[in-house]
């Protein structure tokens, strides 16, 4: 079985319980959600969800069709040529080799975004696979906490 990773964007009316409708659909029909981001579309009554999912092509087709069937859904894009980015924030203790971390993060569109007496926080923004690479590269610096944002994507 060819389990493809797919990015699906969904434009929905920004109203109560719309997010539950989407996530209920995924759980009820046994579809995967790898990541999900949602935010209002500026100066409109709509929100945009970016869902990273996986499955055989028949499953992916069903996902887009079933999403379409939900009444508050305006559009569903199943991306083929897309620009996809994800952000990660990573916290280190200040004793860590700061210059190494800064050098690493800058090669992943990142930088130190916060520092206090005990910790620094590094932000990187890149393609999800590269974010994963970054996260394995910094493992040896013993990060205290990691948070990934999930993908956002636009069709080229």
């Amino acid at each position: 079985m060819d389990n493809e990773r797919r990015v699906v964007s969904v434009i929905v009316i920004n109203e109560a319980s719309v997010l539950s409708r989407i996530t209920d659909l995924f759980s009820a029909r046994g579809y995967n959600i790898e990541s999900l981001t949602v935010a209002p579309i500026p100066s409109s009554e709509y929100s945009r969800l970016t869902i990273v999912t996986s499955g055989e092509s028949r499953v992916i087709e069903q996902i887009t069709k079933q999403l379409h069937k939900l009444i508050p859904v305006l559009k569903v894009y199943e991306h083929t040529k897309l620009v996809e980015k994800e952000m990660a924030l990573v916290k280190f203790t200040i004793s860590t080799s700061l210059s190494d971390i800064e050098a690493l993060s800058s090669s992943y569109n990142g930088k130190i975004v916060n520092a206090n007496r005990d910790t620094v926080i590094v932000m990187v923004v890149d393609e999800p696979t590269r974010v994963s690479n970054f996260l394995s590269a910094i493992e040896r610096f013993n990060p205290k906490e990691i948070v990934r944002s999930g993908s956002v994507a636009l069709e080229q």
Partner: peptide
């Protein structure tokens, strides 16, 4: 509406 979501075409509160 939480309960009926998965067994209706649509629902409203």
């Amino acid at each position: 509406v939480g309960i009926s979501r998965s067994c209706t075409k649509h629902n409203y509160l």
